[in-house]
Design a binder for these strands. Structure first.
Length: 350
DNA sequence: TAGGCCATCTGGTCCT
DNA sequence: AGGACCAGATGGCCTA
């Protein structure tokens, strides 16, 4: 069997393609001109826009102008207008515009629904998923980005998905409620024992080997959370007396707004070139679960199988997500990745 | 009540 | 001409 290493540069491309997520919260609004942004206030731009947004009235006006023009053109002393002659806005043409606009609206609506469906699919493969309390769009994207990054780290360095570092990566740049949510989810199903101490002694891999996890007492996901976005994972960990292993970022920005600034550059350790279109495949556990670490999600799988390091997975061991949900991408088949990039497990490593 | 999030409408641009 | 995509504007809903 051929083995290839799972190159860092590949995934860093992938994740860096999401680098806009690092930009500060204002980026979600997509502009930097506050004078035209005011929340619900009417601004110059919007007034101008609202002057022109009444399509049909506008068109009627235009039609009248055209009519005038025509009259003028017919007249003797009227100045001739240069340039291409405007098509006359006849009633029929006007109606065609209206119909086209209505159709365009419908298309746009369904396009956005498709986008939202895709986001929902994405939410379903995130470490925490709830039908009742959905992550916002921006948080979903950020978490997804972190998730890819964190899983890459698991594969590359054998970091335990139950380690503090894993969760820190997941929570990086997320709002506080989302961070709490993720932390809460990762906590579910774990055995809150003194593993923390064990891990301190024996290294981060131990938790996985023994099947135990760190006891992290974060607020339950459903509970009210403190002011939005002021903590990140490292802060949470510090609150509980944890040391952020490798991902502490002392200079992390205070996320005091709704969508916190994405602090610090992420330089993911791995890279996967290619796309991984997801099949819609709702987990059977979705319906009866509130928040949880999916039994089917990669982190859970990785943690229950303890991948010691990159290159020690077999295809048949690969997470179902990798095997079943990833279809053949544009240039890299993940199947072939799974079968050709991974080597048989080392006995005794699981 | 302010602000966050969202859905929808709309006009512009690019492409077929 | 028409469709896809995008970004701005707007208003509704919800929560702190």
């Amino acid at each position: 069997m051929m083995t290839k290493s799972f190159g860092k540069s590949d995934v860093s491309e992938l994740v860096s393609s999401l680098s806009w997520l690092e930009e500060d919260g204002s980026s979600q609004d997509g502009d930097e001109s506050p004078e035209i942004r005011g929340h619900h206030g009417m601004t110059l731009a919007s007034r101008m826009s609202s002057c022109t947004e009444l399509g049909s009235e506008d068109m009627e006006e235009e039609e009248e102008e055209d009519d005038d023009d025509e009259i003028g053109a017919d007249g003797e002393n009227a100045p001739k207008r240069r340039g291409p002659k405007k098509k006359k806005m006849t009633k029929a043409r006007q109606e065609r515009f209206r119909v086209r606009r209505v159709k365009a609206n419908a298309r746009e609506r369904s396009r956005m629904h498709g986008l939202n469906d895709a986001l929902d699919n994405l939410r379903q493969v995130m470490p925490c998923y709830s039908k009742t309390q959905k992550l916002s769009k921006i948080e979903t994207l950020r978490l997804a980005r972190n998730y890819i990054w964190a899983l890459s780290e698991v594969l590359e360095s054998g970091q335990s998905p139950e380690s503090n570092g894993f969760m820190e990566m997941l929570c990086k740049g997320l709002s506080q409620p989302t961070s709490n949510l993720v932390a809460g989810c990762l906590q579910l199903g774990s055995t809150p024992v003194v593993l923390n101490k064990l891990e301190e002694k024996c290294g981060p891999g131990l938790a996985s080997v023994t099947g135990q996890t760190n006891a992290l007492s974060f607020p339950s996901p459903g509970l009210p959370s403190p002011p939005y976005g002021s903590l990140e994972a490292s802060h949470l960990l510090q609150m509980k007396g944890f040391k952020g292993p490798a991902y502490d970022n002392p200079s992390s920005t205070d996320c005091s707004s709704g969508t916190p600034p994405y602090d610090g550059p992420l330089t993911p350790p791995l890279s996967i070139s290619g796309n991984f279109p997801l099949k819609q495949e709702p987990s059977p556990h979705d319906s009866d679960r509130n928040f949880s670490l999916h039994p089917g999600h990669p982190a859970h799988y990785l943690s229950s199988h303890h991948y010691p390091a990159a290159g020690s997975l077999t295809a048949h061991q690969a997470h179902p997500l990798f095997q079943a949900r990833f279809e053949l991408p544009l240039d890299v088949a993940f199947d072939s990745f799974a079968s050709s990039h991974l080597v048989p497990p080392q006995m005794g490593s699981m």
